[in-house]
């Protein structure tokens, strides 16, 4: 039994003279979703390209499913699924044809894509050409294509980028469903809310380095500030007060405000991953 499905140690990668990945180390276990968070050019996509065998690692070690990674290794590539940021589907083919073709590349003879198409809600448009699909439909098909071989490892590069909330939600549900089946998922995103909602652990990557790697809750506890925002009506005007819940006098202050006649609202707030990212890396997404 392999504990870490993805095991990366001190990975470096350079494009000519530009070092895109500078010694990153992490692991992803079976059924775990690891969110890779970082701004454009942070090294997220390069890391995925190395892990999916598209680029040869410069130095360091990478193993997928217990096997040292090599470029063009059919054994590893038959057990991974990749969803690219770019919508690189065969537009002049239908969804059904796209999935059957990719299943054929994985050596799955007589593959019936209907169950997968139903899962991504494309069964009714299965025979329509992809060129006529909306952005959300294409993205759902991209995810379906990545899952056509029922992979042990799923690499998702910005899977909900530019999608409407409904499409984003359906894709998030799919990702969670796949992880529950035991697939290790490496997810890159700019969307902190999405990372928070999906990821078991998140890695903040910036300038090719992982600055922190932990569960979202631990990060919030460690780096965040819990606050309560209180609105009070006084002498015909509305006053707002922010109380830090981490301070020792927070209880007394809150009690006093709750007893105030003019109390309008109390909202508790916790730090977002975005706040923590900015605090740790010193830059926004």
């Amino acid at each position: 039994m392999i504990s870490s499905v993805i095991d990366v140690r001190d990975l470096h990668f350079s494009y000519c003279d530009v070092e895109a990945v500078r010694g990153i180390t992490f692991t992803v276990s079976r059924g775990e979703i690891l969110g890779f968070l970082g701004p454009n050019g942070a090294g997220k996509s390069t890391t995925i390209k190395v892990l999916t065998g598209q680029l040869s690692p410069g130095s360091g070690s990478v193993s997928i499913l217990g096997k040292a990674l090599a470029r063009d290794d059919p054994e590893i590539q038959s057990r991974i699924g990749v969803c690219f940021e770019e919508k690189n589907l065969y537009n002049n083919m239908s969804a059904r044809e796209n999935l059957k073709f990719f299943a054929g590349l994985f050596g799955m003879k007589g593959y019936n894509p209907d169950a997968l198409l139903r899962r991504v809600s494309l069964i009714e448009k299965a025979d329509d050409r992809v060129s006529g699909y909306s952005k959300g439909m294409r993205q759902r098909l991209m995810i379906a294509r990545a899952m056509v071989n029922d992979p042990d490892v799923l690499f998702l590069d910005e899977p909900t980028e530019g999608l409407d909330p409904v499409s984003s939600r359906s894709i998030r549900e799919l990702i969670l469903e796949q992880a529950q089946k035991g697939t290790a998922v490496l997810l890159t995103t700019h969307n902190m809310r999405e990372a928070d909602e999906l990821s078991d652990r998140v890695a903040f990557i910036c300038e090719g380095r992982i600055h922190v790697l932990d569960t979202p809750d631990n990060l919030k506890l460690k780096y965040g500030h819990r606050t309560a925002r209180v609105k009070i009506s006084e002498d015909g005007t509305v006053r707002q007060e922010t109380i830090s819940l981490d301070k020792s006098d927070a209880g007394d202050k809150l009690k006093k405000l709750v007893e105030h006649e003019g109390l309008l609202t109390i909202h508790t707030e916790e730090a977002t991953l975005e706040d923590i990212f900015i605090r740790i890396t010193g830059r926004g997404l």
Partner: peptide, 16 residues
């Protein structure tokens, strides 16, 4: 140009 070759090359298909 359409990026589909990249998609094919992350399957067991080799460049050759």
């Amino acid at each position: 140009e359409k990026g589909t070759l990249a998609a094919v090359l992350v399957t067991p298909v080799t460049t050759g």
